[in-house]
């Protein structure tokens, strides 16, 4: 029998839209503004989810594919990437054919050194963004689902200690992304988004009971699935559970 089409929201949401939301959250100053940008994205996701799955029962789709990129420090399903700034720096120097003793290569390798007035000292992703900007595609084409698939491949290749395939899967990810998307990808891989918003705030905007359910389960997917509907309270869920 034909497999039912596995329609997921994440397979239809461009990664670029998540990145522009993260960019707005990071750049605006006040907490209410920051949470508004996150809430706008989340509300759109939930409305689209309801429309996409309107005739379906037992839907397992949820905000999890996006939430795990917004809170990468809470990732439990995917193993470590085994990638730090220095490895990324060397990969970009090779990929972009940067002269080894050139200015841009030095910026990437010495990203912790104070330089320039932009105040991006120590922020490898920001420094990489300015190096990548003139050299990256202007239009990204990955969906959130595809980004998660590439990150799965990177984590699996790292676990298999296959450096060659790890580099290959990382290249597939970055060569299909704009400089802005790569800035956020780097932060997701390094697991520090520098959003200026706490995990608690993200949880409280997602659902009043999300922080508590995560404390009990430490399972981000379970939090996103069981509290997908903001009108469902944790007590309802626990009754359903037992």
């Amino acid at each position: 029998a034909a497999q039912p089409s596995k329609k997921t929201v994440a397979s239809r949401v461009p990664f670029a839209d998540l990145c522009s939301t993260l960019e707005r959250i990071q750049t605006c100053k006040s907490r209410p503004e920051k949470t508004k940008h996150f809430k706008d994205f989340l509300d759109s996701w939930r409305k689209f989810h309801d429309a996409l799955h309107q005739k379906e029962k037992d839907v397992t789709d949820s905000f999890y594919p996006a939430m795990r990129l917004i809170l990468p420090q809470l990732e439990r399903e995917r193993m470590a990437y085994g990638i730090k700034e220095t490895m990324l720096a060397k990969l970009y120097i090779e990929l972009l054919n940067l002269p080894k003793d050139g200015k841009d290569a030095a910026k990437l390798l010495n990203y912790r050194m104070p330089a320039g007035s932009r105040g991006d000292t120590g922020d490898f992703a920001m420094i990489a963004y300015f190096v990548l900007k003139p050299r990256s595609p202007k239009q990204g084409r990955l969906t959130i689902e595809q980004v998660n698939e590439h990150l799965d491949a990177i984590a699996n290749n790292n676990a298999a200690k296959n450096k060659g395939l790890l580099k290959k899967s990382l290249l597939q990810l970055i060569t299909q992304s704009t400089a802005l998307e790569q800035k956020w990808l780097i932060r997701m891989i390094i697991k520090d988004l520098k959003l200026g918003v706490s995990q608690q705030t993200i949880f409280s905007v997602f659902h009043p009971d999300a922080a508590e359910l995560h404390n009990v389960t430490t399972d981000l997917e379970k939090v996103c699935r069981q509290l997908h509907d903001p009108s469902v309270s944790l007590s309802d869920v626990s009754i359903m559970l037992f």
Binding site: K7, R12, P14, A16, T21, D40, S44, K47, F48, A51
Partner: peptide, 16 residues
Amino acid sequence: DADVPRWDAFFKCNKL
């Protein structure tokens, strides 16, 4: 996919 809803009908992303 004709009747499948579209993401850009739910999320307006003014380019940065």
